[in-house]
C-alpha cells in the first residue's frame, strides 16, 4: 500500500525525495527490530551517531472520519514509540512506529538518517528496505489471497415460468 493522504503542513517540506523517504519509513514501521538490525548489518556501521531523542513510548490519538468520509473524530489511542538519531555529518533521522519497541524505533531512526546521505541511500534501499518490502508484500498477498477465496460467487437460479 502506498502512503497517501499527507498532511497539508507537508507542503512546507519542499523536498522531492520526501515521498520515497516516507515510503521507506512505512516499510520500517511494519518490520521487526530484528529484521531491521539484520539489514543494517549489511549497510555498514562506519557512521557515527548520537541519540538526539532517546526512544520514548507514548500515545497517538487515532482519528477516523464521521460516516467514513466526513469530519474527523477520535476513535481511541494507540501506543507509539519514537526516537531520533543525529549523525556526525548532521543528518537527523526519525523513527516513529506503532507499539512499544524502543530498539525498533531507534533502528528505524538510524535507517532514516542513513537514507538521507546520498552515498548510503541506495545501500539502505537495497539491503534494508527492499527485502522487508518484499517480505511484507508476500505476507499481504497471502492474506489477500485467503480473503479472495471467501468471495461469494452469486449465481441466479432460473425459476418460475417455462422457457420457450
Amino acid at each position: 500500500m502506498s502512503v497517501t493522504n499527507s498532511h497539508n503542513r507537508d507542503a512546507n517540506v519542499a523536498d522531492a525525495t520526501l515521498p520515497q523517504r516516507r515510503a521507506a519509513m512505512a516499510v520500517l514501521a511494519k518490520a521487526t527490530a530484528a529484521d531491521i538490525a539484520r539489514g543494517l548489518s549489511h549497510v555498514g556501521s562506519d557512521v557515527a551517531f548520537t541519540d538526539a531523542r532517546p526512544a520514548e513510548i507514548g500515545l497517538v490519538m487515532l482519528r477516523g472520519r464521521i460516516g467514513g468520509g466526513g469530519a474527523p473524530f477520535n476513535i481511541g489511542e494507540t501506543t507509539v514509540t519514537r526516537a531520533a538519531v543525529r549523525l556526525a555529518s548532521g543528518e537527523t533521522g526519525f523513527g516513529y512506529v506503532l507499539g512499544r519497541d524502543r530498539e525498533k524505533a531507534r533502528l528505524a531512526a538510524l535507517c532514516d538518517a542513513l537514507w538521507q546521505i546520498d552515498a548510503k541511500r541506495q545501500p539502505v534501499e537495497d539491503h534494508i528496505i527492499a527485502p522487508l518490502r518484499q517480505q511484507q508484500r508476500e505476507r499481504r498477498a497471502l492474506a489477500r489471497a485467503q480473503t479472495a477465496a471467501t468471495r461469494v460467487d452469486f449465481f441466479t437460479l432460473v425459476r418460475g415460468e417455462d422457457e420457450r
Binding site: D51, P54, A55, E56, R102, E103
Partner: peptide, 13 residues
C-alpha cells in the same frame, strides 16, 4: 529494552 536504554529513559523521567 537494554539496561542502558532503561537508564536514559529513567533519567529523562
Amino acid at each position: 529494552m537494554s539496561a542502558q536504554d532503561h537508564d536514559v529513559v529513567q533519567s529523562a523521567a
